[in-house]
């Protein structure tokens, strides 16, 4: 079932086009990452989905309802980019307040505070919290009432690597429960294994929108195969496999997807000469660069 339906949406402020004809769908339980530099239009797109900013043209539907309508808002959880709360309140008071606004039991708010790892600090004033702790309060409020759609704007900024890992565990659970998750980020590496689909935005346009595998295939970026031999056999290996020697004992070869298996077969056929193999597909960074450059050249 389609939870979020964005059709040909544009947003302009006078001559400034922050979002241009973007179409994007999210189904139940899908995790989609919205990638792009600052100013690519990610936040504006989210604000339009939330009904905070009207669309200039096109249409957005949240569970078939117009964005910003009371029913749509009741079904959406939102974590803003730089989340701020009133410093005079404690974490628990703040979350209980949001629970009341959403008609959720306070018991659930307490459970969520525990879930995001804030149990030790719930009775402290938010002004004493670190940025990461505030981000956790923000995440907890976005999860209140098991939303059908979660919009998370730069959710992992300010979190240390372990917290990021825990954060994605929470996102996984959320998606398993049927929530569609749209999260924006410019920290690319962490998204690789944690999202179902990647949507790349630059200068207000949606440049790509597919699974990581499909994006790699479409971009036809080479796969890098590193073969480790011994110092005296490396040159011979490089000549036979057609790669380049990169250090004392290794050879690096770049191949396309369809040639990968045959290459691996040839390497295996070399027998004892080969000590180890590393196969690295194009990274998200490379893909991202590819799609942003492709767009600029296309213009």
């Amino acid at each position: 079932m389609t939870v979020l339906d964005i059709t040909n949406v544009s947003k302009s402020y006078g001559d400034l086009h922050t979002v241009c004809e973007v179409s994007l769908n999210l189904a139940e339980g899908e995790r989609v990452a919205l990638l792009g530099h600052n100013g690519a239009g990610k936040t504006t797109l989210m604000r339009m989905v939330l009904g905070l900013t009207p669309v200039t043209s096109g249409q957005i539907r949240v569970l078939g309802m117009p964005p910003g309508s009371r029913k749509a808002r009741a079904a959406v959880g939102f974590l803003p980019e730089s989340v701020a709360f009133h410093g005079a309140l404690t974490g628990r008071e703040q979350l209980h307040h949001f629970a009341r606004l959403k008609g959720v039991k306070r018991r659930e708010a307490d459970d969520l505070l525990e879930r995001v790892g804030l149990t030790h600090a719930v009775n402290r004033k938010i002004r004493t919290y670190s940025k990461g702790m505030r981000q956790r309060v923000g995440l907890a409020q976005a999860l209140l009432g098991q939303p059908r759609l979660a919009l998370l704007d730069e959710p992992t900024s300010g979190l240390d690597p372990i917290s990021r890992h825990e954060f994605y565990d929470i996102v996984d659970d959320l998606a398993k429960g049927g929530t569609a998750v749209l999260l924006s980020s410019h920290a690319l590496t962490e998204l690789e294994s944690r999202t179902d689909r990647i949507a790349i935005m630059a200068k207000g346009r949606l440049l790509a929108n597919d699974s990581l595998g499909a994006l790699r295939q479409a971009a036809r970026l080479p796969i890098k195969v590193d073969v480790r031999a011994t110092p005296d056999t490396a040159d011979d290996l490089a000549a036979r496999l057609g790669g380049t020697r990169i250090n004392g004992a290794s050879v690096s070869i770049e191949v396309q997807q369809e040639d990968k298996l045959s290459l691996l077969g040839r390497i295996t056929g070399l027998g004892d000469v080969v000590q180890d193999i590393d196969v690295t597909p194009a990274s998200l960074e490379e893909l991202y660069r590819y799609y942003s450059v492709a767009q600029q050249e296309g213009k």
Partner: peptide, 9 residues
């Protein structure tokens, strides 16, 4: 905090 409050029903 206003933007966040306004995303609530």
């Amino acid at each position: 905090t206003l933007a966040l409050s306004l995303t609530y029903p």
